[in-house]
């Protein structure tokens, strides 16, 4: 009991709590922080406590789920019809593009066979939903409803329909935590699509801004240029849209041009996200190929995702 006996408590006395206990607890907290910062034991602890943590996330997300359902229930029919038509059009467009792509993939595959390339870039993806909770407003993390049981691993890129959202940083049994590209500690290797200039886009901590602080001053970067992933660094595969340049100016030192970009992905709106399954550059020798019963033109499409590509 931290309370002293009532007759000793006065308005201005030291009384109530002793400084010694405070110092003991503070030291304990600091020791825990240092140990955790060095060793990262929190993830293990969170895994052990996931039976409590995950339901808590679901419960905390409930109010926003209810609000969403309510909004859907009172949406007018004309609104829904509009949305439906727009989606149909988008689907048609995407389908058309996809058909062209599959022709290209087939062609690419043939050419690769000619060149004797062992590995192909099969694009296994997995759908996950956001659990709408907020871990800390000043760190841009989102919680997804798929975890190690759904074979999510740390480092998988997270995409939405428009571009790269971020990457998985922590995996619990049934949920995982992804860091968005706008998190202040996040950096992603990018390429200016028009010129091929490679640079790095850093998060700023505000949800609609990326910064490119070290672009050479002589480089050809213009407002409106598209940024795509460059594939360097081996984490994000090449060619996914990252953002669009909004502004180019000199930085304080005058040695570099500092550009500001807007992320392509709808970071504050996406409900469903895609998780890429194949990490872009598999290390080590290729896995022994299983005997194929029938020769199909598209080995990437006929493989179950993620089964044959990882050693």
């Amino acid at each position: 009991m931290p309370l002293a006996s009532p007759d000793k408590v006065s308005l201005f006395a030291e009384g109530a709590v002793s400084t010694l206990r405070l110092i003991a607890y503070l030291t304990m907290a600091m020791i825990i922080m240092v140990i955790d910062h060095r060793g990262g034991y929190l993830i293990g602890l969170r895994n052990a406590a996931s039976a409590i943590v995950e339901p808590a996330y679901r419960v905390a997300a409930m109010p926003s789920e209810v609000a969403k359902a309510g909004r859907l229930a009172i949406a007018t029919q004309s609104h829904l019809v509009d949305e439906n038509r727009n989606l149909r059009e988008a689907l048609l467009l995407a389908q058309a593009r996809l058909n062209r792509m599959s022709a290209l993939v087939a062609q690419n595959d043939r050419l690769k066979k000619l060149l004797d390339v062992q590995k192909d870039l099969g694009l296994g993806v997995q759908l996950a939903r956001l659990i709408d909770i907020d871990l800390d407003p000043f760190r841009h993390r989102v919680v997804l409803d798929a975890g190690s049981q759904q074979s999510i691993v740390v480092g998988q890129p997270v995409l939405d329909a428009h571009g790269v959202m971020g990457q998985i940083v922590e995996v619990l049994p049934n949920t995982s935590v992804a860091m968005l590209v706008t998190d202040p500690t996040h950096a992603i290797p990018v390429m200016v699509e028009r010129t091929g200039l490679r640079t790095i886009a850093y998060g700023t901590g505000s949800i609609d801004r990326l910064q490119l602080p070290n672009v050479p001053i002589s480089a050809d970067v213009k407002v409106g240029d598209l940024l795509v992933t460059s594939g360097l660094g081996g984490r994000f595969p090449a060619g996914f849209p990252v953002g669009e340049i909004l502004d180019v100016s000199n930085d304080e030192s005058g040695m570099f041009a500092a550009a500001i970009a807007r992320p392509a992905a709808a970071l504050d709106r996406s409900g469903e996200v895609l998780l890429l399954q194949d990490l872009p550059q598999p290390m080590g020798p290729p896995a022994p190929t299983p005997v194929q019963s029938e020769a199909t033109g598209l080995p990437a499409a006929s493989d179950p995702p993620g089964s044959g590509n990882r050693p």
Partner: peptide
């Protein structure tokens, strides 16, 4: 443990 930041930060 719930928010997954540095262990001990909120304790302090």
């Amino acid at each position: 443990v719930l928010t997954g930041q540095l262990l001990g930060e909120q304790s302090l």
